[in-house]
Simulated scan of single mutants.
Amino acid sequence: MSPGTDLSEFLTESERGVAEWVFKNNKHAGATTNTLPSAKCLYMSIRGTGGALAVAAIVTKNREKPEAFEKNFMVAILDECGLALEKEMTVREKQAVEERAHQETLRANLLRAISHDLRTPLTSISGNANILMEGRGQLCQEKLQALYTAIYDDSMWLIDLVENLLSITRIEDDKLGLKTQPELLEEIFQEALQHLDRNASQHQISVELEDDLLMANVDARLLVQVVINIVNNAIKYTPEGSHITLSAHREGDQVEVEIADDGPGIDQDAKDRIFDMFYTADKKRGDSRRGLGLGLSLCKSIINAHGGTIQAVDNHPQGTIFRFTLGAVEETNHE
């Protein structure tokens, strides 16, 4: 059959019916055979150990029956195709089993982590609320403020946890549903800064943009969540008074975003694992219940879903830079 040949006559419903019969019965049929001989092609099954895996359609010249050597040669080729297909199917089935096992392990780990990490803040909230109820009029203003603050902090931590869990669930179920459109990085940054940890006021947080009209194709809601998670991470792990800088610039067809701090930095082992789910770089913190290890893993999933990359690198002379890329909005010249 020469290139450019019209194949429409071989793609009719009747031809499809013959191919389906061959696949179902694992036998040859069609032209030059005694089964459905009116077909335009000779249909031969590609066999595996468990039955037909596919069907090959062979256009015969002048509907002549192939000689024994030709038929044996075709069968040999199709048998090799069957072995290759079966091998590929086995690999895919193994990958599917491994993926299901991974998902089950992930869900089990997530459930264990959540059940453990939820207990501490909930116990703290209920305990502090009980003190407030039983100690009315007996607590000084300083003690009352401490209790209110503790309840607020634990409540906000629970809200952030739920938001991250919902996003992770959508990602794992492939239901993230990105709704990208051109967005100003300035507006993304400012929106994120409105929803930071209460301790943000103890740090020097600034925004530096080479172009106030710099835009990227993003899902604004999800990118705001990325910025919040990374900045809150810097607030959590850097001392009071540290500088945290949000910046972005264009690099070809991408926008490179950096969130830098001048804190103690992250050692190399932690940088290699910091985006793994459930990993926390500092397990010795007194408030370790706030180290579930979902935030940065979620950031990586969101950035990857946008087609970008994310990494943690050293800041100089000290500190850490979280750097990620996004698709830039094509620049248009207006005259």
Rank of each mutant, 00 (worst) to 15 (best):
residue 7 L to R: 08
residue 12 T to Q: 13
residue 13 E to N: 13
residue 27 K to Q: 14
residue 32 T to D: 10
residue 37 P to D: 12
residue 38 S to A: 15
residue 43 Y to S: 08
residue 51 G to V: 15
residue 53 L to M: 07
residue 55 V to L: 11
residue 56 A to S: 14
residue 59 V to P: 15
residue 65 K to G: 01
residue 70 E to Q: 07
residue 73 F to Q: 03
residue 87 K to V: 15
residue 90 T to D: 06
residue 100 R to D: 11
residue 103 Q to F: 12
residue 104 E to Y: 15
residue 108 A to W: 08
residue 111 L to R: 04
residue 115 S to I: 12
residue 117 D to Y: 13
residue 122 L to K: 09
residue 123 T to H: 05
residue 126 S to R: 07
residue 136 R to H: 08
residue 143 K to Q: 08
residue 149 T to Y: 04
residue 150 A to E: 15
residue 152 Y to D: 11
residue 153 D to S: 14
residue 157 W to L: 00
residue 161 L to G: 03
residue 163 E to A: 04
residue 165 L to H: 07
residue 170 R to A: 10
residue 173 D to V: 06
residue 177 G to N: 14
residue 180 T to D: 10
residue 191 E to M: 10
residue 195 H to S: 09
residue 203 H to M: 05
residue 207 V to P: 04
residue 215 M to N: 07
residue 218 V to Y: 02
residue 222 L to S: 11
residue 223 L to I: 06
residue 227 V to S: 01
residue 231 V to A: 09
residue 231 V to F: 11
residue 242 S to A: 12
residue 245 T to N: 01
residue 248 A to R: 05
residue 250 R to P: 03
residue 260 A to T: 11
residue 263 G to D: 03
residue 265 G to V: 12
residue 267 D to L: 00
residue 268 Q to N: 09
residue 271 K to Q: 14
residue 283 K to W: 13
residue 284 K to N: 11
residue 284 K to C: 01
residue 289 R to D: 14
residue 294 L to T: 12
residue 294 L to M: 01
residue 295 G to V: 09
residue 300 K to M: 05
residue 304 N to T: 05
residue 305 A to Q: 14
residue 306 H to Q: 02
residue 310 I to W: 00
residue 315 N to W: 01
residue 316 H to Y: 05
residue 319 G to H: 01
residue 321 I to F: 08
residue 324 F to I: 07
residue 331 E to W: 06
